[in-house]
Amino acid sequence: MTQLALVIDLNVCVGCHACVTSCKEWNTSGVSGPMFDDAPYGKDPTGTFFNRVQTYEIGCFPNTETLHFPKSCLHCEEAPCVPVCPTGASHKRDQDGIVLVDYDKCIGCKYCSWACPYGAREFDEHQKVMKKCTLCYDRIYNQDFPESERKPACVLSCPTSARLFGDVHDPESDVSVAIRERGGYQLMPEWGTKPANHYLPRRKTRKQIHAEDLVRVDNPLSKEDIRRETSKDITLDDWLM
């Protein structure tokens, strides 16, 4: 069985919001649109988005670290938002595991959004139906695009390639390898929702420096250091002469 998903690399996400705007641009004009914007230049701009980037500060000054955190529907394998829907509008596709809302069936009761622990769904105040990330199902199979562009808009737009897309059930896919080898994890695993989307953690490249790396034990210079009494020991270099 296929389960398409995103894997988001928090180590390289710079919080530029390119995925947010490209998601909105693609989807507002695609089959999932329009996505409303109210007072975009006013005091309290608001609107419908399928994807948001949040920012967290971890630690206390001066030992702080900034984490940019993109958040969209995780296309959970045990999606709690699906069985609660009274109309069947909220559904999970068998063929690729994408969780979608059928706008023509939705009655706008918002019950599914109560059942999603991640707050991944947003009610469209103008169209009066529930909306969420579609995993760009109208791009990824679109024969009008060249093969290389049959990917979600947010994945294509990310300047640091922080977003990977693929089948997490195929053990050899890029996303599965990334999850396996780079410590991919799920959000709030304690709820048992089995999110298909995974996140790759922040990683630091540290070098462990030992004292021996800095001071050579048998340093020949120490033999010739006229400021101190020189050693009578034989050094490695004496053998080489």
């Binding site: 007072a39 006013g42 005091k43 948001r52 949040q54």
Partner: peptide
Amino acid sequence: SMGMMGGSY
């Protein structure tokens, strides 16, 4: 930052 300024759903 919550990803928006004027609030959301």
